[in-house]
Design a protein around this nucleic acid. Structure first.
Lengths: 209, 209
DNA sequence: TTGGGTACTGACCAGTCAGTCAGTAGGGCC
DNA sequence: GGCCCTACTGACTGACTGGTCAGTACCCAA
């Protein structure tokens, strides 16, 4: 207690302080969601007072958007690079992706942003639009191209590559949604990794020539 | 205007008033969501004052739960009856289901409750638990039994019936989620009905013996 | 050592909204 | 007509929270 009372004021360089605020916001948003996180909480978690938060971000929504830009865009860039440059057998890549994402979901480390977006999209349509344009559309487009290349190589049957892309991601979306909707109230009915493994096997049998 | 000013007080029997309040809440929750609907709005839409709402429902959450119980349980009963009694070719039923749900999604008439649950689950874990136990688990269980019967008849290959049930619903979940997350900010990338038609065809090819 | 720039504070404001309750009025009954 | 039960009202409270701003204190430069 005695070490809490002094409340020594600490000056930091704006860059450092800004990062600390973003990190605090990330932690709180991921635990409580956007609406249930108060600006006072963000400030306290970063060790400053609320006024300071407003020196760095004009509104709560701007704080969210800054977080999105910091974390999501680099990640999307890496994903697009892989999808666009991969020319091996598509089945192998799909299995790797499903294995990786299944592990993430089972471990409870689903990325924060899809969850937040689903919950807050209707209240913040601008953020939903940003995410849709900068994340969803490019990634699904690259996935569609990947399937198109596989079809033209004769590796897959000649269905609609766009449908294939959406069908491939559907069980991952469902598994993630299940996790963050019902994850706190009951053990998952199916484990994500074997579930997604079964998905890829079924899917590949369904789309082969 | 003149016909609005008098504000004649109207007495109704409690049953009728209660139904009117539930209907008003349904309309507003489906348009604005739970958090963004005020109890004053519900009262106004039902033509009463806020105090009256509290004569029928002790809290806002209780109003939501009453709505769930009124609408969801009968519907689940009908779905379970069909799934449990169907013994024809499973492919036919799956196509029918996909066609029906695809039409609903394309028409913008996705049922209110999945949407509300996904958005509010973390704030109202009791309601999430109710929905999980009374809707999700029974329906997926019946679907699993349906697949199990089809496997034992030799209509499908011998995979895991539980995985099949979850894989079958995944694209519907994804399509509905897309609709109520991004539906207001952009035209859908794929139409649900042909998408789900492609899903059933791919799925059936993937799981045949 | 002092002055000034600025990172920072926290009390305060304004708006919102779930929930309350003392009082009002409609209508059935004698 | 008059009584009384109860459905109904709506002003009010209390708690909350995003955002503001006048003032404070730290640090560095001269």
């Amino acid at each position: 207690m005695s070490d809490l009372l002094p409340k020594k004021r600490v000056r930091l360089s704006p860059d450092v302080r800004r990062d600390a605020l973003l990190q605090a916001a990330h932690d709180l948003f991921s635990r409580h969601g956007f609406a249930d996180t108060r600006m006072d909480d963000v400030a306290a978690a970063a060790g400053v007072s609320k006024g300071t938060v407003y020196l760095y971000f004009p509104t709560k929504e701007a704080l969210f958007e800054a977080l999105l830009r910091r974390d999501v865009l680099p990640r999307v860039g890496r994903i697009l690079f892989v999808l666009n440059h991969y020319n091996g057998p598509v089945g192998w890549l799909l299995k790797r992706v499903a294995h990786f994402i299944g592990g993430k979901i089972d471990a409870g480390t689903v990325p924060l942003y899809p969850k937040l977006l689903v919950r807050e999209a209707s209240r913040f349509p601008e953020l939903a639009r940003f995410y849709h344009e900068e994340v969803i559309t490019p990634v699904l487009g690259a996935l569609e191209d990947l399937f198109r290349r596989a079809i033209s190589r004769g590796e897959l049957g000649g269905g609609d590559a766009k449908f294939y892309a959406h069908l491939f991601i559907a069980p991952m979306v469902k598994a993630a949604l299940w996790y963050f909707t019902f994850g706190e109230i009951s053990a998952p009915a199916v484990r994500a990794r074997p579930y997604l493994k079964a998905h890829v096997e079924t899917f590949l049998r369904g789309v082969r020539p």
